[in-house]
Each structure stands twice: as structure tokens, then as C-alpha cells.
Amino acid sequence: MDWNDLKYFLEVARGGSLTRAADVLRVSQSTVSRRIAELEARLSTRLFARHQTGYHLTDEGRELLGRAEAVEDNMLAFERGASGLSPGVSGLVRLATSDNLASDLVIPALPRFVARHPQLRLEIVTTTAAVELGRRDADLALRLVRPSHGNLKARRLGAMSYGVYGHRDYLARHPAPADDPLAGRAMITWDEAHAHLPAAQWLAKRAPEAHVVLAVSTLRAQIAAARAGLGLAIIPDFLVTDPDLVRVLAPGDVFSDGVWLVLHADLAASSRVRAVADFLAETVDAARAALAGEA
């Protein structure tokens, strides 16, 4: 059996639709449909029940799912091991990180890295959700939370501090008592889908009764809202470049996150992954003071 057939089966089983599987596999929906039909014909077994709500595993499909995932784990382990055999720094490396770390930290430093390794292609996946390094959604990650499970290697590169900021005009229009600079002021924060993020959790604990004037799904939108004078926002200190954004709490009164470099243990010997890991470590080290709010 072709290993690629199992990829189509697994992605449809996980996503429940041809559309999601096609997006992940970067093929057309018709290709996914055809490959699933061919697999079912080859096995003489219907793996999915087709409904208006999507593709649902049949009893036979559920029986084969665990076995297909075991094959996937073995194939990915083989690929990770093979990637470490090439001595040259070339090929594709997928990096997962947040949008702000990618745009404001990693990408500005990329020109010198590209000049150093012209045969290497970097693909950056920006998301606030944790990606599955084990399933090769990415080869390595730059995260603000240390992973707690998986065959992963994690290295703390530094720390990123946060502050509560407001536009100076907004602060002048909404004075607050000296003992609580948040009192009586509106807050800009993450939407419900991102309530698990450290900034959202800090606000829920520090000011549970705060008046939230705006909830959004990106940090850039929060910064834009604070600059527009809508209220206060919790922002990484190194992203604040507008002199009209004023910190209202002392550094020790907010919080900081560790900046973690994470990669799958099987990829530690890969020359191309090691090259990206070294580049990230150098980049974070060069920005250490700014990330910690000391610059």
C-alpha cells in the first residue's frame, strides 16, 4: 500500500471534510475524494460515511485509524532520522512561532541568515495555537510556553516581558487612582478563542471586573486599538515603538514569558534544522535586552 494513501485517509479522518484535508495536503478537493475512493476500493471497505455535515468514520474506518496512525508515527520517525544524514545545509525547514515574533524578531534578521545558507528554504507558520512537531506540522518552534509532553528538546533562549499601555491622550482623559492605574479604565484584550493565552489569563486574575471595550484575535489589532485611544492593552514591551503609548504599571507588576526553542529530538542531528536553531538562538540573544523590556 502507498504511504500517501494513508495520509489522505488520516487527514480526512482528523478534519472531517475534504476541504480541510485538501488545505493541509495542498491538493484539490477532487484529488482527496479520488484518493479516498481508490483506497476504499482497494480495501473493499467503506471507510467514511458521507453526510452534509462532513465525512464521518465508519466502524471499519475507526478500526483502521489507530493502525494508520501507528504507520504514520513510524514513517515520520524514519523521515526525521533520514533528514539528519545529509551533511549539507539545504532543503526545507518549517518554523512555527507567533505572528509578532515572526514579523518583529525573526524576519528582520533573516537577510544575513539567507546569505549564509542560500540553499536552505525557511517556511514560517504563524499561529497562537501549539503545532504538532511530532506530525511534522513544523520542524521546530519558537514558543513562549514550554511544552510538557512529546519527544521534544526545549531550550530557554531568553525572556519576553509585558506591560500595560495606553495612549497618553486616553490616560489624560481617564485619570485613575495612583494605587490602581487600571481602575476606571477600559481594557483591550484577546477574544474568547484566545482566553488561554498568558495576557488574557493575567487580566482575568488581576482585574476580573475590568470593562473590556474590545476583544480581538491578534496582538497587532490590540496595539492599533491602544494607539487609537480605546483603552489599555497588555503588550510585549519590545513591540512598543510609539512614544505616545505610555506604560501604566511598573515592570514587576505585570509578567514575563520564557522564549523557548523547541524541536523534535529526532531532528537534533539534522544540519539544516540545527542551522535554523542556531540562527534563532543568535537572534534572540541579540534582542535580549529589548525582549526583557530593558532597552
Rank of each mutant, 00 (worst) to 15 (best):
Y170L: 03
R50G: 03
S148I: 11
S256Q: 02
E123R: 15
H264S: 06
K7N: 15
A82M: 06
R42L: 00
R185H: 13
S28E: 14
A70G: 07
R274P: 00
L197I: 12
V89R: 09
Y162I: 03
S161I: 01
G150H: 13
R156F: 11
L197R: 14
V164W: 07
Y165E: 04
V164L: 06
T218W: 11
R42M: 02
V262Y: 04
H194G: 04
L214E: 10
L239K: 07
D59H: 08
V131A: 10
V145M: 13
P118T: 00
R50V: 09
R185T: 11
H56Q: 11
L232R: 09
H167S: 01
A286V: 03
L25D: 00
D59G: 08
F113K: 14
A228W: 07
E209M: 03
D242E: 06
T97I: 02
D104H: 15
R156N: 08
D179N: 01
I36V: 05
R116K: 07
A226C: 14
L171F: 15
G163T: 14
L10W: 14
A199R: 04
R112H: 11
L267M: 04
P118V: 00
H211V: 14
A295L: 12
H196G: 09
L120R: 13
T241Q: 01
R20N: 02
N4D: 11
A172Y: 08
D191Q: 02
R116M: 03
I223H: 06
P251L: 03
L64E: 05
D242Q: 04
A215Q: 07
L219R: 05
G258C: 12
S86C: 12
T45C: 11
T189Q: 01
A210K: 02
I188Y: 05
K205Y: 11
M75I: 05
D99R: 15
R135E: 08
R220N: 06
T126W: 15
E38K: 09
V27F: 14
P147C: 00
S86N: 12
V93R: 13
A193D: 11
T45R: 14
A290N: 03
L57V: 01
D242Y: 05
D104K: 13
V32R: 05
R20L: 01
G54E: 06
R116D: 02
I223G: 00
V216H: 05
A109F: 02
I235L: 13
S148P: 12
P177T: 08
V216E: 03
L65G: 09
L95Y: 12
A204W: 08
D278S: 08
L43E: 10
S271F: 06
A225E: 08
A178N: 10
